[in-house]
Nucleic acid binder design. Sequence first.
DNA 1: TATTGTTATACTCTATAACTATA
DNA 2: TATAGTTATAGAGTATAACAATA
Lengths: 204, 204
Amino acid sequence: MTDSHAPRSNLRHRSAQTSAPPPTGQEADAAIDLGVLGQSAGFLLKRAQMAVFADFIATFATADIRPAQFSVLVIVGRNPGMKQSQVSAALSIKRTNFVPLLDSLEDRGLVKRKMAAADRRSHALHLTAKGTALLTELTVLWTQHERRIQDKLGHDGWTQLLRLLNGLENFGGATGLDEADVADLPPAKPKTRTRRVAKPADAG
Amino acid sequence: MTDSHAPRSNLRHRSAQTSAPPPTGQEADAAIDLGVLGQSAGFLLKRAQMAVFADFIATFATADIRPAQFSVLVIVGRNPGMKQSQVSAALSIKRTNFVPLLDSLEDRGLVKRKMAAADRRSHALHLTAKGTALLTELTVLWTQHERRIQDKLGHDGWTQLLRLLNGLENFGGATGLDEADVADLPPAKPKTRTRRVAKPADAG
DNA sequence: TATTGTTATACTCTATAACTATA
DNA sequence: TATAGTTATAGAGTATAACAATA
């Protein structure tokens, strides 16, 4: 079914082949062998995301704007009048968690909830004049931030990265959407709790 | 200094050029314009990471192993005898958060803290026989998981992605390392608190 | 009955300060 | 004085359940 595009041969880089651990743990102090983590998209995605977000947060610190807040401002700015549930779904944020996030922006006078005439349950979202002005400034910061990534990867690498990341959209099905509140489901697993109780690490 | 590799020309894809928002927010229900987020490495990295982790968690659910736990097992398995601080640094996990993570594995008999003879402050980490056996099984699951990503991106795309992600290692400086406890620093910012107080969204 | 926004709540992940025992 | 591990705690981010208003 899925064997059309890739040779899918080498998923056996390190661990499966060389199952014997090389360093004995004495003078191997500088470099740690990441094993399969070095070929693990999840691990590398997480690490890269943390690094990029760190630069983002530092860049936007003067404006006191977090990544999620910036995302909302961008979406609302380019899609005025959308409902909360539409914006939150576009950002894979559950509508229940979207409420305080929107609050933080509305309290600062950047975004406005307006009553939707057609459906009085929903709120149409718009940027305020202040929000629009701030977004213009934030876009400058964002350009500087993104340019640093381009400088790190090269422009072609940066373009490739964006294309590949877009290819992983809705891969695992972790959307943050609500799926009609789900409701009737078994309570899953009993959970493995772990409380620490004084453990002096006996000798080996 | 950094103008050697990329033309760095087009960071002006959407927002800077077309500053007027296209949809009026009425029949634009299906597709939302992501604006600059579509060219934002941070946003796309986060989204891809969430999707990949969702598949990872579903794949490893039968073994009740989380991504961070798997990472520790892999690192300890390939680097036996390393200190906690070394392993946690390799995974960009603060040593203070690494303690309960290790506890969860030691309580299940997968990892053992052994007293290091040379430095009695540190703990040398080793897999138990049970931990080694489990890691072998987990590696099979991991291969299935990673292969699904390969199927999604194509083998070449997958290889490119790993290479590009490695290029973003220690980009922003968000390592999760400890930097000698830092200690003397000003308390940063006053924080923008947000408590909600009944807001019925007046009409516009 | 279903949807929209909301509240309350809990769990995970991450971050900081301070302690202990060793060095 | 500095380091390794630990504890406690606080803060984000994310998850589910339940409710009122509206459809």
